[in-house]
Amino acid sequence: MSNTTLNDMTAAQSSIGGLLPWARILLDYTDAVCGCVTEEHWDMRPEGQGEGYWFSLGEFVMHLADSRREILGNISGEIEREKLWCSKYGGTSEAWQWRSGSRAEVLASLAEGRAMVDAWLARPASELGAATDASVSQWKARVEKIKAAGKDASAIEAAGPESVADCLMFLIGHEQSHRGALQALLRLHGLEVTRYA
């Protein structure tokens, strides 16, 4: 391992977004693919032969917009729940429920979430591996709850609170997963869609 310190970093690497230069590119990719879902196909739901629930194309975009807010809530401690589109989580097999919204409203919500992610990417790179006050509080509360229920909390205690790195890694990985699925479905139905590779 290099003995490079924070002082050796280039100016570009001094922010989290500079340290992860592809992060904004992948977030842009999600935004571009979501923007390819037309009004006409917004409510289209795949008819796969496999088991389980499928999001409609519009619900994919709603879920992506919600996820930006919810996942960041783990480190910011703030979630504007009234802005979430999902009103009932159905797990992997049951239908999720959503409040209604126009395509324009959902895309605006996705953009709002994106601005929230960008604010974290603008923070100093030195914060990437650190937990936040909010994630420490949530971790402590979770440990207490498990202990109060008489269960073993040792694994969660050892793992420690969620770091900014953990949160952003999950957010971007999760989002690329849904972007990939949405893109595959758009392509299968012959719709024009942005592709990086």
Binding site: L20, W22, A23, L26, P46, G48, Q49, G50, G52, W54, A165, L168, M169, I172, G173, H174, Q176, S177, H178, R179, G180, A181, Q183, A184, L185, L188
Partner: peptide, 21 residues
């Protein structure tokens, strides 16, 4: 992180295709 995010995109495409099959 890039490796992880990149492969989640391809994993999801593969998963979607398998489900459609």
């Amino acid at each position: 992180f890039f490796l992880s995010a990149h492969e989640q995109g391809h994993r999801a495409v593969l998963q979607t295709q398998l489900r459609q099959l």
